[in-house]
Design a protein around this nucleic acid. Structure first.
Lengths: 196, 196
DNA sequence: CAGAATAATGGCACTCAGCGCCAAAAAGAT
DNA sequence: ATCTTTTTGGCGCTGAGTGCCATTATTCTG
């Protein structure tokens, strides 16, 4: 009886995204993002520099981890909202849910966001990730209103939701023990009253 | 009588920002932004590559031209608004004024913004310019409300104003003959009704 | 067990942005 | 003429990112 191996053939991967992320974050904390080279990260992981670029398309992508997967969950959550909920309410509710993390993953999330929002190089790169995030909202709003995703209102909803989210993260990072969910709600109310 | 020379001593500059911008834009149009090297721009201007970096801190900064000066005008315009005008109205009015261009400079402005908003590399870099633009709004709102510039409302006002502006530009670029001022007004109304 | 097939690794060499350094060029001032 | 000031641009380096490809590790098949 042969040992049933339900693995695909080929050499086993030497590392994974998580290990690279951990090594990289440690170096980023120690020396700063711009001062850390891919060479150093590769050495810390115990892997070749070339291999790093197979796991992350760029150094700037490391702090974002598995963002693409989160986006799929985000889209799924939006799709699950009953269609009798007003669009703006559906979007805002899912934005809040998207940024609701368990108690235990909060410290890491805070480090991640502090790095992303506090490093100019990463602020710039984030624009591309933000665009993908907005795309999810645009598609949902477009579907709900039966218009094109690049029409005025879907785009506006995407941009404004992002503005609110980023603004909330900045506020959250400024106050050590604060609650992100609460701040998101607070900012929405602030926006409404600001425009009145 | 000696010829009075009220110039400062030293070698005369061989080029200027305008000339570099024109040469660069022609190349960007012809081959695309990422495909154009600083080497090529230098050659087109008839200047050393090293010199280019004295005029623009990076290749990404070329499409933005003299944005810093515009920001000073933006801040001045905000400061001129009578204090009995509601804050949100003052901000929105100045955002509209900031993006009001003469008939003749419109075609070039359209080319510039199409390049910036249509090139991922530049979208990313723009985040840094946007931050400076938001800073002007934050400072104004903070002064008007007598709070810190990094407080919740000034930040939110900055982010939301930017969201509205970028969203408007995207809409403006989509419709060939459209009026940016009108679109900005339209988006503001759309935002109010969206949040209601 | 001996290949054959498959999949990940990582070295090598290259392009390009960006920067520090510094000598040369071009101008006014004495 | 010489000194001073300012811009230029060449040189050489670092570091991100990429294409190419031989090497290595693993499963599959006869």
């Amino acid at each position: 009886m042969t040992a049933t191996t339900n693995r695909s053939p080929g050499r086993r991967a030497v590392t994974d995204h998580g290990a690279i992320e951990r090594a990289a974050f440690r170096l980023f904390e120690e020396q700063g993002f711009d001062e850390t080279t891919m060479e150093q990260i590769a050495e810390a992981v115990g892997v070749g520099r070339r291999t790093l670029f197979r796991y992350f398309p760029s150094k700037n992508d490391i702090p974002w981890g598995q963002f693409d997967q989160s986006l799929r969950a985000f889209a799924a959550q939006l799709a699950d909202v009953p269609s009798d909920v007003p669009v703006a309410e559906a979007v805002h509710g899912c934005v809040v849910a998207f940024n609701d993390f368990d108690e235990q993953s909060l410290p890491q999330h805070r480090i991640r966001m502090r790095l992303i929002l506090g490093t100019p190089t990463l602020q710039a790169h984030s624009a591309l990730r933000y665009a993908a995030w907005r795309g999810v909202i645009e598609d949902y709003v477009a579907a709900r209103l039966d218009v094109e995703p690049d029409a005025l209102l879907p785009r506006l909803a995407g941009h404004v939701s992002l503005a609110l989210a980023v603004s909330s993260y900045e506020q959250w990072l400024r106050e050590p023990g604060s609650d992100l969910t609460r701040i998101l709600q607070l900012e929405m109310e602030a926006l409404r009253s600001y425009l009145r």
